[in-house]
Design a protein around this nucleic acid. Structure first.
Lengths: 343, 343
DNA sequence: GTGAAAGCGCTAACAT
DNA sequence: ATGTTAGCGCTTTCAC
């Protein structure tokens, strides 16, 4: 006989086995205090004996809440969101919520499906860790339940968001390079990538504030290996080459490093390089990129906090949080040649 | 007013708006054929108008099935399982199932919780992509619903499994190296890691079958950077050093490559190196490791197939599938010095 | 072709 | 301290 064909025990089976009503079983199993010790023992014994497992579906139906926080994720391969979700899991768990994830691999169709799965399951709140979901779909879902968009590019009405403050991150980079003595600090931007615009503006503002406005130089790039390579070739095809480059993200910085080595330039001796995102590379990798770290787990935890605020009913207006990033100084930045020669 | 405080429309609201019974709404929304065109139009219009979204919880309760395949994942950072799950999503989707994931980050407690979440939601079947869940918990869950353990180390009664055939993979490696002319082929093993035992045995069997039994040499390692480093120092502290090394996985192989370069040995000129797992490294990385590729997405798809077999009720006995891996020849293998000098 | 009614497994009043 | 009852939103007989 296949034991799986046997019907699973319900709360009524437990009640009968324990010789009590199902209400009492429900009370005991949810840890109510006003139940006699004897009945409590009976119920627990019967439940254990039958291998009873509460049906969250039935509970969810009657309570009109699932005790579930959903996470919509577009790409399982992206380690960035893995860190964010670590924070989500931690915060959700310590607040008594379970977390389920739905993955939208490739394409708008899969995204719709993954989102619908979550919404139809009547999760209590949704965290979208997915840069590609279209704003319309998010806005529509936002009318049904509390939603937090984490590390996304858009600001959507009625939807909370948590991001890193790209402007501060860029300023940290410029300050670090200026402190080292650099003046000709160039920027390879991130094209239309998430936050790229704010990183560029942050760079420009910081340069001006430090009196380096005359040395500002921005060339077009993208959040790809190739973006970094092209940026470097644009920068070094002119007479005045920079002594330091701030590149919009780590992937592009990686491409830039390759392009620089092809040009015979050494990092950081000839030119300093800074990326953005602190993307985890191969363990033991010999590339130690100076970069900006987004507080990913913190962003995840904060997303849950925002969700809980709304679930508790204490808030109605959307909040957009910007979390401060950190500079991680590694091996690709050093004082410029001229300065060191002058020492 | 907060629109989210308004009750969500139910099937009854749609029925009233369309002027029909809720049974008819149900029929129309699930695409029944024997409904008049007129009523069908009315119902659809009312549903769209109200922004009705079916409640999967209620449906699941009455149907006693959720149409959901659950995936239990222990580590979101592991790209190996990301590929497996790609296959799961694809196969589940094309068979009309939705997929939800539960992540058990760190520790047995989180694992229990993640597993319980899935089981209490009454998913129809479970795929465990998680090397760390204890066998007892899996076996217990296996009595409640169909389960497939993918890329796991244990064989559990009543639980199907899908893995790669480590023995074949190891044989492919040895054959490749022997074809290149190597004889002194050593193995740095994976300690107690998943499949490490079978990889070592496969190596030994292949060496003997090729008449290289006398050249067999196994040193202790582990599935870590350090495992590879220690293995190399063990191998090269003796007189007769190998001309090729088969290392139990890519991470350890990476450590081995570093240790070799520290010894002044060049790869593949002085020694050939082969790993296992085809772990995706940094994009654009200059390390092109010859390795063995597990058919990860295929393993995911096959897991779903096994689940569907049981869900269709067609099977009761457990199946344990071994899928053939592929050798990926890259830049870390070449003929041994002696052979080339003799050319 | 359509509607009425029962019931999935549970919680939450309300009785007692 | 315990039992009874109603009903969450849906699907599914069964009548008509």
């Amino acid at each position: 006989m296949n034991s799986r064909t046997a019907r699973r025990p319900t709360i009524i089976d437990v009640a009968i086995a324990a010789g009590v009503s199902k209400s009492l079983v429900s009370l005991v199993l949810r840890g109510a205090s006003n139940v006699s010790v004897e009945k409590r023992r009976l119920v627990r014994a019967a439940a254990a004996d039958l291998g009873y497992r509460p049906n969250a579906v039935a509970r969810s139906l009657v309570q009109r809440r699932s005790n579930l926080i959903g996470v919509l994720l577009s790409d399982l391969h992206n380690p960035f969101f893995a860190d964010v979700i670590d924070g989500v899991l931690e915060a959700a768990g310590s607040n008594g919520y379970n977390t389920i994830m739905s993955v939208a691999d490739h394409g708008a169709l899969a995204e719709r499906r993954a989102l619908d799965t979550l919404l139809e399951l009547r999760i209590d709140g949704l965290i979208i860790a997915s840069p590609t979901v279209e704003a319309n779909a998010i806005a529509a879902a936002g009318r049904e339940m509390p939603i937090v968009l984490v590390a996304g590019r858009a600001r959507i009405s009625d939807v909370d968001s948590v991001s890193n403050d790209d402007s501060i991150g860029a300023a940290l980079v410029v300050q670090h390079l200026a402190d080292l003595g650099h003046q000709r600090i160039a920027h390879i931007d991130g094209g239309g990538g998430a936050g790229a615009d704010r990183r560029r503006k942050g760079y420009e503002r910081a340069m001006r504030r430090l009196g380096l406005g005359a040395f500002m130089r921005v060339v077009a790039g993208s959040y790809t290996d190739e973006g970094g390579r092209k940026g470097v070739s644009a920068l070094f095809s002119h007479s005045q080459s920079p002594t330091a480059i701030f590149i919009a993200n780590d992937l592009a910085a990686h491409g830039a490093l390759i392009a620089l080595s092809l040009l015979g330039l050494r990092v950081p001796e000839d030119v300093s390089v800074v990326g953005y995102d602190n993307t985890t590379l191969t363990p033991g990798s010999h590339i130690h990129l100076t970069t900006v770290d987004q507080p990913r787990p913190d962003m995840g935890r904060t997303s849950v906090t925002l969700l809980l605020e709304r679930l508790a009913g204490g808030r109605d207006a959307a909040r957009h949080l910007l979390m401060p990033p950190n500079l991680v100084v590694r091996g690709t930045t050093a004082p410029p040649r001229a300065t060191r020669q002058g020492d």
